[in-house]
Amino acid sequence: MGLLPFVFPFAELEVGKHLYWQIGDLRIHGQVFMTSWIVIGALLALVVVGTKKMERDPRGVQNLLEFLWDYIRDLARTQIGEKVYRDWMPFIGTLFLFIFVSNWGGALVPWRLIRLPSGELGAPTADINTTVALALLVSLSYFYAGLSNKGLRYFEYYVHPTPIMLPFKIVEDFTKPLSLSFRLFGNILADELVVAVLVFLVPLVLPVPVMFLGLFTSAIQALIFATLAAYYIGEAVEEHH
């Protein structure tokens, strides 16, 4: 890593450069998909290994999976409520696991050692496309949750205490995905940039505490995203009289 400043001069810190793949008329960011497949592969491998031989007395990876399951269930149950949390647990859990593994993968794996023709590998969540995709999925989910649970009465929520709330609630529908996506994107990208800049300036020792801070931030961001997603869904299905 000490060689990095010479390999990547700061002027070319690769911010906003992408490895483009062309599929028909569509252009996609190849480096994001490559790391996201690794993340998904790691998740699936863990899950397959852990559920291969499940027993009543858990052993090995099964313990970890059950801990995660329990954690996600508690998260979903406290935010969404006893009645419908089961339907949304897989979604909340997938968001949490995907973001968490993405963030930690971005922070722990020295992706920069793998050279790409353009752009560089990193956490998929450091790309605005990923976070906006996740945030829009959350928006769709809470609309779907509200409409499927309460039908058109869902829209009572917009005028709930008084009709004066209507414009604010409408604005909220836009700010929710905006804040969700930008919070995650900003935190992860900023963390990667800070580490990169510090590695460039002082290649020894100094970046290490910042890297630990980055791990902390990564975990917290995954938790925040999943908790807020669950909270929005819970808000949409909540019955208020």
């Binding site: 569509l26 996609i28 897989p90 496309n129 906006v132 996740l134």
Partner: peptide, 20 residues
């Protein structure tokens, strides 16, 4: 830089949700 990464990532996450 928004492009087709966004919808494809969304599809990918939805698929991952069902698989998980």
């Amino acid at each position: 830089d928004f492009d087709a990464t966004l919808p494809l990532m969304a599809v990918q996450v939805v698929l991952l949700t069902f698989i998980l």
